[in-house]
Design a protein around this nucleic acid. Structure first.
Lengths: 144, 144
DNA sequence: ATAAAAAACGTGTATATACCCCTATTTACA
DNA sequence: TGTAAATAGGGGTATATACACGTTTTTTAT
């Protein structure tokens, strides 16, 4: 009798739940898991434009812009004009690097906690399944 | 060399992706997947209070209140004072029921699309893993 | 060289979400 | 019974997110 639950809603619920847990774990470093992830991306890309970061994260450009504004207000990143006058280049500040570094072990702790909770094999499986969900097939049913 | 990705961020990405797909699928019925899910919950609970729905969905009460306000503005639900003067009771309107009914086959289509994309066994596995993620263990490492 | 197309960004608007604090009402207890 | 505690909601504030539209700058094609 129990009805089938919505995969999308279940995914969102799990994401919200984990967000709370990760945010709580990172709190001592003064950043959220969103900020942690974005600082990481910006550092990796080395002075990228908003567009680059948006592509790398899969987020909408305007979303990214607003998220980065939060990081900027917190003094974690700074923006400056790029060579291409249309662009603005993002740099992680010293404060941002320090916060990120402090967050790394806390984040690792949470990742390990999740591996422990799910079990290593199931953790790997979940990562794989989530990776599959990133790809939107043109037509799942097939056209022919 | 490839660095480990954040489980939380991966989950959120998948959830955002699926939300887009489900929303697109439900668009002909005039509701989003959020609204679909909430209409379903409200119908199941039969004239519940905000609190009841919040508990059932695992969302914050204030979040629920704001979501329901959107449904109310769309004419999908109506609110009226409950016996307990502190509460407000939510009812799905005829319009809401019609929209929900029209959405059901579209939603089922998406669910099947996801099963097809992942494969039935992996779909089931994913549901199981997501269910596990709903439970926050007091202490994963164990205290004793 | 110029006009059209494309790219990068900002803003407006809207939903989804959470946390905190305040108010009104109900319940429990002493 | 009268007061303290618990419960249900509302509103403020803030982040995360997307889409549509407009502006500026660069590229491309003629």
């Amino acid at each position: 009798m129990s009805e089938e639950t919505c995969l999308c809603i279940d995914l969102r619920g799990a994401a919200q739940n984990l967000t709370r847990r990760y945010d709580a774990a990172l709190a001592p470093a003064g950043i959220s898991v969103t900020q942690f992830s974005q600082l990481h991306t910006i550092q990796m890309l080395a002075q990228p434009t908003l567009q680059r970061v948006a592509e790398a994260t899969g987020l909408d450009r305007s979303t990214l812009g607003r998220n980065v504004r939060v990081l900027e207000a917190a003094g974690m990143v700074s923006m400056s004009a790029g060579e291409d006058a249309r662009t603005r280049v993002i740099k992680v500040t010293r404060k941002g690097r320090r916060a990120f570094q402090r967050a790394v072990p806390l984040w690792s702790g949470m990742q390990n906690e999740m591996k422990a909770q799910l079990g290593g094999e199931r953790y790997t499986l979940l990562k794989e399944l989530l990776s599959d969900l990133k790809y939107i097939p043109e037509s799942v049913g097939g056209t022919s």
